[in-house]
Design a protein around this nucleic acid. Structure first.
Length: 320
DNA sequence: CCTCAAACCTGCCAGC
DNA sequence: TGCTGGCAGGTTTGAG
């Protein structure tokens, strides 16, 4: 399932493949994918003739700043960088770990509007040749010059796309953005911030880590991995955490996300990058989805419980 | 204000 | 074999 590292990986791939190409049209195969504020027809009408200036990530949201495609450059960009093979080579040459995360602290209104995407659980964004056979769960197709296509595939139909009109606050259309807490890699996300947000709270720390208004981007997998690396039991109430534990959690969040981004996503899930290639998370999960198996550190049996409706995995010895 | 559970949806898998 | 129920998970919504 796409969490911050997977969305970041997709964002970087999109920035290398999709920019500065005119959108010629598209096809909405499932109307409910387009967020309610606009019809599928209007959505496509608004995008036509525009191009993507740059992709940003905020939490698990993908946001493309649009620009009006310049008339004079219409003959440019045939062949070359847009073909899947070439882009794949380019990606391979660029060490992804050396890139700066592409989150955008403030999403200002744009002259040509924005395109927003949330993959939810099963969404995939693929950069393909337009002739690529249609997947069973293809939901939205956006056609670009050079016979290329940005295709949104989503088995469980929870994923969403938004069109944010020109000169409009992004968060007024993509309303979920308003509720997002700080990015884990931002200066705002400090141990002191975390301590303040957890102070006197009654809920378990695992639940708090999944709360996007506290910190943006963690999902079920990395929340469990974070707590293992911190040595903290997921059931521990926030109010009961020591300052030292909070410090370890803060460090572990950044560490686990950095490592996953550096390896281009995770193999925990059916995650595909924009080229349709499976991620290759270097390490294996410490605890996630390992119930009944021995802890990689102490060999105790990994346990699984339910917390706030989410499966939660931990080592009863290493985590206290 | 705070916390939690249900709902959204489809495919897969265990159990009968 | 074929059915049923549980489960997977990000976010929103509404109940307590």
């Amino acid at each position: 399932m796409p969490e911050l590292p997977e969305v970041e990986t997709i964002c970087r791939g999109l920035n290398q493949a999709t920019l500065d190409r005119e959108m010629l049209g598209g096809d909405v195969l499932l109307n409910s994918t387009i967020a309610r504020s606009i019809s599928a027809t209007d959505f496509l009408t608004q995008l036509k003739g525009k191009s993507i200036a740059r992709w940003y990530r905020r939490g698990k949201y993908l946001l493309a700043e649009l620009s009006q495609f310049p008339e004079g450059e219409r003959e440019r960009g045939t062949g070359g960088q847009g073909e899947s093979g070439r882009v794949g080579e380019f990606l391979a040459q660029t060490p992804i770990s050396s890139q700066t995360p592409s989150f955008c602290p403030s999403l200002l209104p744009s002259k040509a509007g924005w395109l927003g995407v949330h993959l939810r659980m099963t969404g995939q964004l693929l950069w393909v040749n337009r002739s690529e056979p249609l997947q069973k769960h293809a939901r939205v197709r956006l056609f670009f010059e050079g016979n290329q296509e940005l295709r949104f595939v989503d088995q469980r139909t929870f994923g969403q796309m938004w069109y944010v009109p020109a000169e409009t606050e992004v968060s007024s259309t993509v309303t979920g953005l308003k509720l997002l807490g700080p990015e884990p890699f931002s200066e705002e996300f400090t141990t002191e911030y975390l301590a303040r947000k957890l102070h006197r709270r009654a809920r378990p720390i695992k639940t708090a880590l999944l709360d996007q208004s506290l910190i943006a981007g963690l999902g079920n997998i990395y929340a469990d991995e974070t707590l293992f690396l911190s040595g903290v039991m997921p059931t521990t109430l926030c109010a009961d955490l020591t300052a030292e534990q909070i410090g370890r959690i803060h460090t572990a969040i950044i560490q686990v996300l950095q490592k996953a981004i550096a390896s281009g996503g995770t193999t925990f899930s059916n995650f595909l990058n924009v080229q349709g290639v499976n991620g290759n998370y270097g390490g294996v999960a410490w605890v996630y989805n390992r119930a009944g198996q021995p802890c990689r550190t102490c060999s105790a049996t990994i346990e699984r419980i339910k917390l706030a409706g989410r499966s939660t995995h931990f080592c009863p010895i290493c985590q206290t």
